[in-house]
Write a protein that binds this DNA or RNA. Sequence first.
DNA 1: GATATACTTAAGAACAGCTTAAGATTGTCT
DNA 2: AGACAATCTTAAGCTGTTCTTAAGTATATC
Lengths: 223, 223
Amino acid sequence: MKVLLVEDSASLRRSLTTGLKNLGFTVDDTADGSEALSMALTGNYEVIVLDIMLPSIDGITLLKTLRQNNNDTRVLLLSAKSAPEDRVKGLLAGADDYLTKPFSFDELHARLLSLLRRGTLRKNIDKIDINGITLDLQLKTLRCNNKFIDLTPNEYKIVECMFTNQNTIVTAEKLSEHISGQYDAVSKNSIEAHLSSARKKTKVSGGELPIHTKRGFGYMISE
Amino acid sequence: MKVLLVEDSASLRRSLTTGLKNLGFTVDDTADGSEALSMALTGNYEVIVLDIMLPSIDGITLLKTLRQNNNDTRVLLLSAKSAPEDRVKGLLAGADDYLTKPFSFDELHARLLSLLRRGTLRKNIDKIDINGITLDLQLKTLRCNNKFIDLTPNEYKIVECMFTNQNTIVTAEKLSEHISGQYDAVSKNSIEAHLSSARKKTKVSGGELPIHTKRGFGYMISE
DNA sequence: GATATACTTAAGAACAGCTTAAGATTGTCT
DNA sequence: AGACAATCTTAAGCTGTTCTTAAGTATATC
């Protein structure tokens, strides 16, 4: 698991490097912005931990340049600023997560793991295929045996949420939130009804929706 | 916003207490470790500011005990030592942040705010392996010899509680509370039945649950 | 070996999830 | 605005699973 650490404080850089190496990561590090950029573009890293304050090129500019070059390595920004507008600016520039100094090493570790776990990259993937059932995120449709399956908006959102969260248990509450944007706006029974309908439609087309019920816990797509 | 301040120096304790109260926090304070522990377990605090050097129980031990009791109140450690290994030790024991004496009051303030703001991420371990039996906290499942063992919700919760409290005797009452969230909602016999079933299921998969009965006291996972 | 404690099993009660259909809501078209 | 279609929500019945209880069996400790 290759990590690039870009941080200009020598002591912090050193302690993070050793900490991450102890956890089994392969770590390259640099203090310099322009060096970091060339490393990022060529080094094939899983994650970049990027400080905003840097000599030669600042972190935000570096990140933007990276994204303009269609590089979608996941980036975790480090910053001394905690103002919400800075956070927003960082995320708009294409950061995947944001951590404010001072932070605990454990928190950095936790966030790195969560970034690495996120199977799907931020950049526009447009199709997800699972066992011959294809979800087209652009066309908002499901395909199976070359037949298009028409889903209603809520049915689609349920399937989308499941397809983008493989190997994770997704609770009914989470699906509800994904549908409406608010907590608990859509009842559990309503979700059951939508899912039931979506399953039926795929069955009619000769397929089977790979969404499995983990009774008592939620739903899951595995493998 | 309730804060528990644990600090044995009377003058520092007094000045921090008044300072925090002026900032609008509700502050309880104590100089004694064992008193602090009982307060922490019952007082429902948002944050605990904890000095390491204390009479009766030291801060690290206190913190570990707290975490063993599944209490995940955020903890900011105070220490006179600045050596990185002390910092690491504190964070490993379950601290959320670490501050070295001497510190400015503004810095304490800033860190408290940052602790309160962030959703506690410390609990992000997702797998626990004991003697070849792996508990997956994400997938809510148990693995053994590469076979998945499906547990019912209550069986899972019992195993989870035991796996996250190694080297500690866990009473039936505690398991009951972990299952239901309330005191004494699930009978002892019911827990025995669930545990029996979980043990049977692992045996069928060719393994053995490492949960041992401490007759008269409760259950324990050792080593 | 007696006794208390823990384990196992089986049966009924309670519950979670699925399905269907009916009523409510929303949006669109004339 | 009113009518119509599509979609969403809710309720009710059904099924299979899980939980609890209780009675019988096993086991540790004295």
